[in-house]
Every structure is written in C-alpha cells, then in structure tokens.
C-alpha cells in the first residue's frame, strides 16, 4: 500500500505520459496497415483482389463510361469502401502486380459523417 502511495506521490512531479494527439500528430510507422490504394493505369482487371477480399470491400462494377485502360475489356470500374475494409491486406497478397496496381499505404483510414452515407449503395 505504501508503495502505491509513494508511486502516486512521485508521479505528481513527473511529466505525464500523455501525448498531445490532435495538436501534435503521431508519426505512423511505414509498415502500418492503412488504406488500400489503387492505380488504375497499372491494373490488369484480373479481379483476384475482389475474390480474395473477405468482407467484399473491393468491387469491380460495370459502368457506362469505363476508365480508359486497354486491359479493361469488360468496362469495369474499381470501387473501394474504406468503411467496409478490414485492412487485412489479403488483396495485396492476391494481386499479381503488388506495389504497382494495388498496395497498402500507411495512411490513416478516413472518418465519415452522416452525409457520406458510408453504408449506402457503393
């Protein structure tokens, strides 16, 4: 009991452990598993990432004006929902061109508000 008593007393004169987070940002480690990023030019539309993704956060959907890419024969467009993603990086491991077409950055996932309709259609 006296040890904790003493510990509390010494803590009073120590600098607190608290980091002032919103004021001073935290440096993310380069290996932090953050947002999945995609490069449309490099993609070969093999759809391996879509099949590998456990929650189905990556979707290739047919659209009217498909992105201009010679590999894109079916007229697909890449969709990614960061609010559904579980950041397991299984898609990156499935990708035949990791670090070029699809890679995991160390950026923080976004914060959404009501207007974003994150649970909406896409």
């Amino acid at each position: 009991m006296f040890n904790s008593f003493f510990k509390a007393f010494t803590n009073l004169f120590k600098k607190p452990q608290t980091i002032k987070y919103p004021a001073t940002p935290i440096e993310k480690d380069k290996d932090f598993r953050g947002l999945i990023e995609y490069e449309q030019e490099e993609c070969i539309y093999c759809l391996k990432c879509e099949k590998a993704c456990p929650p189905g956060a990556i979707l290739f959907v047919s659209v009217e004006n498909p992105p201009n890419n010679e590999k894109n024969k079916k007229g697909l467009k890449y969709h990614y929902n960061p609010y559904l993603c579980i950041y397991c990086s299984e898609c990156v491991r499935a990708c035949p061109k990791p670090n070029e077409a699809l890679w995991q950055s160390n950026k923080k996932p976004p914060i959404g508000v009501k207007e974003d309709e994150v649970n909406g259609v896409l």
């Binding site: 960061p82 993603c85 950041y87 923080k108 914060i111 959404g112 508000v113 009501k114």
Partner: peptide, 14 residues
C-alpha cells in the same frame, strides 16, 4: 449515426 470511425480494429488515435 453522426460519425463513422473506420478501421478494423480501430485505433485510439482514430
């Protein structure tokens, strides 16, 4: 819902 915090699992920072 007013604010959505993503991440699995999310971090104290977020």
């Amino acid at each position: 819902v007013d604010v959505y915090i993503s991440g699995c699992a999310t971090s104290p920072e977020l």
